[in-house]
């Protein structure tokens, strides 16, 4: 589907990071799932109804690859027309990402930053180390 940048990202993330994280979590928690006594009928029904509603919603959608679909007639081609003389960067995805949608990318970077800080605060051990020092009177903690 011509999305070279996305394919690249997904390959790097999927091969490099997410496998390590999932396996790391499994090693830190439990290996097996306890069998649940809940019936799976209600979730199945809810999922089927939601799916049917969504399929009904797609009946009005434009066909795959249709060149006069709403997504292809407004801002997308406008970017493609303006990038060569306004930004002058061959890769249109990079030009939009960093220049036209710079605010968006700044926000996304801030989300990655916040998620990283959250992980550090939850499990990096910085906090527990400090708490141990406070509990131990010899190290001159607040206790």
């Amino acid at each position: 589907m011509d999305a070279v940048d996305v394919a690249f990202t997904e390959a790097a993330v999927g091969a490099g990071i997410s496998t390590v994280l999932m396996l790391g979590t499994l090693a830190l928690t439990a290996r097996s799932e306890r069998s649940s006594s809940r019936s799976s009928f209600v979730p199945l029904l809810a999922v089927l109804v939601t799916g049917a509603a969504l399929v009904y919603g797609t009946l009005d959608m434009p066909s795959f690859g249709q060149s006069d679909a709403p997504a292809q007639t407004h801002v997308g081609p406008d970017y493609l027309e303006r990038i060569p003389h306004e930004v002058g960067v061959p890769n249109a995805v990079t030009a939009i990402l960093a220049s036209y949608r710079g605010y968006d990318t700044l926000g996304e970077t801030a989300v990655v930053f916040a998620a990283g800080i959250g992980v550090l605060m939850l499990i990096s051990g910085l906090r527990t180390r400090r708490r141990k020092e406070e509990d131990d009177p010899d190290t001159g903690g607040s206790a």
Binding site: A12, P90, T94, L97
Partner: peptide, 10 residues
Amino acid sequence: GDYSPGGGFQ
């Protein structure tokens, strides 16, 4: 990244 696929995220 501005000439070929790629960029800061990748």
